[in-house]
Computed example of a mutant assay.
Amino acid sequence: MRHHYQWIDRFDKVTLIFDGDETGREWAQRAAALLPPGKGYIGEIIGHKDARSALMAGDGRAIQSAFFNAEKFVPQGIFRVKDLIAEARRPVERGIPWCLPGLTKITFGRRYGELYTLGAGNSIGKTDLTTQCISYDALSLGIMTAVIYLEQPPVETLKRLAGKIAGRPFHIPVEDLPEDERYSQQELDEALDRLEASPNLIFAGNFESTAWDDVEKKIRYLVISEGVKIVYLDNMTALVDETNERASVEGIIKKMALLCQELNIIIMLLCHLATPDGKPHEEGGQVSLRHFKGSRAMGAFPHYAFGLERNTQHEVPEYRNYSILRCVKDRYTGRYNGATISLHYDVASGQLVERDLPDDYYGDREEGSGGHRRGDIPPWEPDVGGPLEL
Rank of each mutant, 00 (worst) to 15 (best):
G370H: 03
I17R: 00
A238R: 02
I8M: 15
D50G: 05
L259R: 08
R194L: 14
T117E: 01
V147E: 00
E156H: 12
I106L: 12
Q351V: 04
D277S: 14
T275N: 13
F306T: 00
G363D: 04
T333I: 10
P302F: 01
E208V: 12
K329G: 02
T15H: 03
Y332P: 10
Y221G: 09
D214R: 13
P154V: 11
Y183S: 02
I85R: 12
A274T: 15
I148M: 13
K13C: 10
M298Y: 01
N122E: 12
I46G: 09
T237H: 11
P317N: 03
P280A: 13
A57P: 00
G58S: 08
I324G: 01
R290W: 03
R182N: 07
A54I: 08
K105M: 15
H314E: 02
G40P: 01
I134R: 02
I106A: 06
I85Y: 11
E93I: 10
P276L: 04
S295L: 12
G285L: 09
Y361R: 04
L115P: 01
I266V: 12
T23W: 12
G386C: 10
L233T: 06
A146K: 07
H171N: 08
G109R: 04
I266F: 06
Y319K: 02
Y322G: 05
L55Q: 10
L150A: 00
P302M: 10
N206I: 07
E179Q: 14
L259A: 10
E181P: 07
L258P: 10
I78M: 11
Y345V: 05
Y116L: 08
V223N: 11
A204E: 08
M298I: 03
D128K: 15
L195S: 02
P378V: 09
G285E: 03
L325C: 08
S53I: 02
E181G: 05
P387K: 14
A57D: 07
H291N: 11
D383W: 14
G20I: 02
T107E: 09
A28L: 10
E389V: 15
H344T: 08
V174P: 03
E282K: 12
H372K: 15
G40M: 11
Q286N: 15
G142N: 13
D376N: 12
K126T: 06
M268K: 07
E190C: 06
Q186M: 13
K254T: 03
P178L: 12
Q313E: 11
D12V: 10
P387M: 11
K72C: 14
R90P: 05
S349D: 08
H4R: 15
D50S: 08
G251D: 03
K126Q: 11
L84S: 06
H291W: 07
I45Q: 04
I17Q: 06
A204F: 03
H48F: 04
V147R: 00
T104D: 04
D83K: 10
D241Y: 04
V81N: 01
F11W: 14
Y149M: 10
L188E: 01
I172S: 07
P178Q: 07
S288N: 15
V14S: 03
I265M: 13
Q186H: 14
L84P: 08
Y304E: 09
P97Y: 06
D19S: 07
Q261I: 09
R168I: 02
D214H: 14
